Simulated assay, not measured.
Amino acid sequence: MDFEKENSAGYLVNHMARLFAKELQRHIVPLGIVVGQFPILLELWVKDGVSQKDLLAKIDVEQATLANTLNRMERDGLIKRTKNPADARAQLIWLTDKSSALRDNAYDSAQTVNAEALQVLSVSEQAQFMDYMRKVIANMRSG
């Protein structure tokens, strides 16, 4: 069986994701956040005060990875946790004023990275590319 990484969707997507992450990291480090924290912040900027279980369902990482990242974020003053009044065993995760204030600059950083990366595609190709990625993600999440 021949395997050519240049014709492997998984390899290419992973390689592209690493390049996106590297470039995003360069832009957001001055804000005091790192790439691993970014998906969590994106979710909390949309809806604050969610459980770890809710976050886990949205960002598709391992539970231990999320727990470690949340511990670091709490240590760095980016989130705070409170008891969940509906479930004494769970905690709710909240943004701090510090992380709330980073939102606009972080969004700008992500938009800059996206625009630079996708500039080689026409507007219609960019739309198709985004549609294709959403379809593949939905397919993989349902399987």
Results as ranks from 00 to 15, higher is better:
residue 13 V to T: 08
residue 15 H to V: 04
residue 25 Q to F: 03
residue 67 A to S: 15
residue 92 L to Y: 01
residue 86 A to P: 02
residue 75 R to G: 03
residue 95 L to W: 10
residue 77 G to E: 03
residue 5 K to G: 07
residue 6 E to A: 12
residue 81 R to Q: 12
residue 38 F to D: 09
residue 76 D to C: 08
residue 88 A to M: 10
residue 22 K to V: 00
residue 99 S to Y: 02
residue 56 L to Y: 07
residue 48 D to W: 07
residue 71 N to V: 06
residue 96 T to P: 12
residue 55 L to D: 03
residue 72 R to L: 13
residue 92 L to G: 03
residue 56 L to V: 05
residue 40 I to E: 06
residue 34 V to S: 14
residue 78 L to G: 08
residue 11 Y to R: 04
residue 73 M to L: 09
residue 12 L to F: 00
residue 63 Q to D: 11
residue 44 L to G: 12
residue 69 T to P: 06
residue 76 D to H: 12
residue 58 K to L: 07
residue 95 L to E: 12
residue 103 R to N: 04
residue 48 D to L: 09
residue 59 I to R: 08
residue 64 A to N: 07
residue 30 P to G: 06
residue 78 L to Q: 02
residue 42 L to Y: 14
residue 83 K to P: 05
residue 70 L to V: 01
residue 93 I to Y: 13
residue 45 W to Q: 09
residue 98 K to Y: 10
residue 14 N to W: 02
residue 72 R to P: 04
residue 7 N to A: 10
residue 66 L to V: 01
residue 67 A to Q: 08
residue 111 Q to M: 14
residue 7 N to R: 14
residue 31 L to F: 05
residue 25 Q to S: 14
residue 35 V to R: 15
residue 22 K to R: 14
residue 81 R to A: 04
residue 94 W to K: 14
residue 79 I to M: 08
residue 58 K to S: 11
residue 54 D to M: 04
residue 91 Q to M: 05
residue 70 L to N: 06
residue 27 H to E: 15
residue 96 T to R: 15
residue 83 K to N: 11
residue 62 E to V: 00
residue 23 E to Q: 13
residue 6 E to I: 00
residue 3 F to V: 01
residue 39 P to H: 06
residue 21 A to Q: 08
residue 110 A to L: 15
residue 58 K to Y: 07
residue 67 A to I: 00
residue 27 H to K: 15
residue 22 K to W: 02
residue 49 G to R: 09
residue 60 D to Y: 05
residue 87 D to C: 04
residue 39 P to V: 02
residue 7 N to C: 06
residue 14 N to F: 00
residue 71 N to L: 10
residue 68 N to Y: 10
residue 38 F to M: 13
residue 54 D to Y: 09
residue 94 W to H: 15
residue 36 G to V: 04
residue 89 R to F: 01
residue 69 T to C: 10
residue 105 N to Y: 07
residue 53 K to A: 11
residue 23 E to N: 15
residue 63 Q to T: 03
residue 40 I to S: 13
residue 29 V to W: 11
residue 97 D to A: 13
residue 111 Q to Y: 12
residue 61 V to G: 08
residue 26 R to C: 08
residue 79 I to C: 13
residue 85 P to W: 06
residue 12 L to C: 02
residue 32 G to L: 04
residue 39 P to N: 07
residue 33 I to Q: 07
residue 85 P to C: 05
residue 22 K to F: 09
residue 27 H to C: 13
residue 22 K to C: 09
residue 47 K to A: 14
residue 100 S to G: 15
residue 41 L to G: 11
residue 66 L to T: 02
residue 82 T to Q: 12
residue 58 K to T: 00
residue 12 L to I: 00
residue 98 K to L: 07
residue 86 A to R: 06
residue 26 R to E: 13
residue 15 H to D: 08
residue 47 K to Q: 14
residue 18 R to Y: 07
residue 108 D to S: 14
residue 94 W to V: 02
